[in-house]
């Protein structure tokens, strides 16, 4: 078990300078999710037009993995239609299971190492679960 497999430079970069951190003044779909086993929480905001996620922001408290994953997800999902966004979430689940998956937004692939740290998978998926929930509430 090598720590560097988990904490890749690109992950720490997203953790230390998260993309899309914050909230929209109005008009967004908001999803609040907790990870009740550890106290992490995320508030995800999606701007939606005609079955498309046009923009996304998040705020919350959590470990490097959960915050970096949310940061990447909000970047990757911008401009995606609902079906594409859900497919992306599906691919992320596959990545967590250790399957070789490629992403158009390549940073996400850095999270493949999480698979070797089973206790941390729930951290990585928190933001993605919020995305699913947000889209399903609007479908």
């Amino acid at each position: 078990m090598e720590l560097d497999d988990l904490y890749r430079r690109v992950i720490m970069d997203h953790y230390k300078t998260p993309r899309n951190k914050g909230a929209f003044p109005e008009g967004a779909v908001t999803v609040e999710l907790n990870n009740p086993t550890c106290g992490d929480r995320i508030s995800l905001q999606l701007m939606i037009e005609n079955d498309m996620v046009t923009n996304a922001k998040f705020s919350g408290e959590g470990c490097s993995i959960s915050m970096a994953s949310a940061s990447m997800m909000t970047d990757a999902v911008k401009g995606k239609k609902f079906d594409e966004a859900l497919e992306l979430a599906q691919s992320f689940s596959a990545l967590m299971k250790g399957e070789p998956v490629e992403f158009e937004y390549e940073d996400i692939e850095a999270l493949s190492g999480v698979n070797k740290f089973p206790a941390r998978i729930k951290c990585a998926t928190l933001g993605w679960n919020a995305l699913r929930k947000g889209i399903e509430s609007r479908k």
Binding site: M1, E2, L3, L6, Y7, C38, D40, G62, C63, S64, I65, S66, F117, A119, R120, C123
Partner: peptide, 12 residues
Amino acid sequence: VHPHDIATVLDS
């Protein structure tokens, strides 16, 4: 440093 990250480094 988030407590999860502390626990993971310690576990390693």
